[in-house]
Amino acid sequence: MVEKKFAGISLLIIFIYALVISLSENIFFLLACAVLPVLLFFWKKPEGLGALKKINLVNLFMIVTLALTWPNFWEGLIRGLIIAFRVNMVYIVFAALILPQGAAGIYKGLKFLKAPEKIIILILLTMRGIYILNERLDSALISARLRAPGLKGLAKFKVFAYITASILLQGSEKSERVMTAITCRGGFEGFNVEA
């Protein structure tokens, strides 16, 4: 229950924080908003910050594009920097509160926030589907690559589309078997979303 409450409150905090930081472009307001991520950074020491490198590479591209396309170069540059600042701040809060809990945290949080049961079941089953079907898609792609190395152009897209379509069919068949298994175990009433 404590975990569920923490996950739910974390989701609410990140939602409200992202909204508040989007409301103003005042530099002092934004600096005041930076207090929460800075505190969380030193308190929680989040581990998932490696993605910030990639995010900031995109930010750099965005800043240059905005500076060059804005009517006034400096205004565009400042706008880009403000957006990049917001992205970094929200991501640190996200990395400190949501990422350590993983996908389990998301559906525990949604359950605490009284989200519809159907969406929670959908998230849970999609997670399981990803793990099960990942292997099949990978092996199909590897075998296609071995059969026809260096495939190019339209033929490559054709092979990829055919593989995806056949995995869709396999996924649909697998889902029928999973549904039968769930029904045998007492239906969704016995479906443990806490597990």
Partner: peptide
Amino acid sequence: VRVAFLSS
């Protein structure tokens, strides 16, 4: 269940 597997 079907929607979940297809979306995965």
